[in-house]
Design a binder for these strands. Structure first.
Length: 288
DNA sequence: CTTACGGCCTGGGTGC
DNA sequence: TGCACCCAGGCCGTAA
């Protein structure tokens, strides 16, 4: 599941191959996840890639228009759940569900593979790109602690929902939310505005620590994630709660539980991460 | 303004 | 061995 660390790893991998390259031609398979496939076939051939960036969970490939056409634009790629953006020599076997092929001027190929087609791809003019990106929240690795505190306290919602909300913080998904909350010993159903200063301080530190460690280990390969060279990450070996329902907490040996919060499976330790009062009451009544 | 929920999509796992 | 069913979850549109 590509979240910030996975998308960052892919971006760094692509940075080794793509800047300076020109697209020679484009080949498309299924296109129901592409905003305007005809525009991609029409606009991209002949264009040079200037840079590859990550923005939240998005990859942005910045392009220079064809000679004589002037200006710049970007290709925006969201990997969804199972998206893979890989460069390889063209003779490499084509993985099933590969729907986009860009031939590059150094003989290599850039391919997009997406089993479930939850990803999204579109072209963005510079103006459209800037107004689109403005809607998103802070990058958790660039935020100051003060900014982070203000963002979390700004809205009345469960901390799990706030961490997942791309308009509060950009780039965090289900895995890194649960891993950060476990390390900070905060229950996913706590309300953001009710977190104590000390808890917010711990959460800021653990979010950054978890994301940095995950980037260092090149992301979490839980199902389909691979980097720009087709290789798996290793942070899944460091997961402490994600997908560990029924197993023992690494800290206190209590049994890890799973609840649905904000519509997502949420894994937590019932002993390390104390439930908020309103939830404890409700549980008591229900279980009676 | 807020939160909640269904639908999108495929493969892997489970149970009968 | 086959088949129905459920689940993984980011995001968007719609509803409350």
């Amino acid at each position: 599941m590509p979240e910030l660390p996975e998308v960052e790893t892919v971006a760094r991998g692509l940075q080794a191959f793509l800047p300076g390259r020109r697209i020679l031609n484009v080949r498309l398979g299924k296109t129901d996840f592409i905003d305007d496939p005809a525009a991609i076939e029409r606009e991209l051939p002949g264009c040079r890639i200037l840079a590859v960036r990550r923005f939240g969970k998005f990859l942005l490939l910045d392009f220079e228009r064809k000679p004589g056409h002037g200006g710049q634009f970007s290709l925006q790629v969201h990997l969804g759940m199972t998206g893979q953006l890989v460069t390889c020599p063209p003779e490499v076997r084509i993985a099933p569900h590969t729907h986009l092929f860009f031939a590059l001027d150094d003989g290599r190929e850039l391919r997009y593979t997406d089993i479930r087609r939850f990803g999204r791809i579109r072209l963005l003019s510079n103006d459209a790109r800037e107004s689109f990106l403005e809607e998103f929240g802070l990058d958790p690795l660039e935020a100051t602690e003060e900014n982070f505190h203000v963002s979390i306290r700004s809205r009345r919602a469960r901390i799990k929902a706030l961490l997942l909300d791309q308009h509060v913080l950009r780039g965090i998904g289900n895995i890194y939310t649960d891993e950060s909350l476990w390390r900070a010993r905060i229950h996913p159903m706590r309300l953001g505005e009710k977190l104590k200063g000390e808890e917010l301080h711990r959460l800021f530190r653990t979010v950054q620590h978890v994301l940095r460690e995950a980037i260092r280990l090149r992301g979490s390969s839980v199902s389909d994630y691979v980097d720009a060279n087709g290789e798996q990450g290793e942070f899944q070996l460091r997961h402490r709660v994600y997908m560990r329902e029924g197993k023992k907490c690494f800290r206190c040996a209590a049994v890890i539980r799973r609840v649905i919060v904000a519509g997502r499976s949420s894994y937590f330790c019932p002993r390390c991460q104390t439930a908020p009062r309103q939830v404890r009451k409700k549980t008591k009544v229900n279980s009676k």
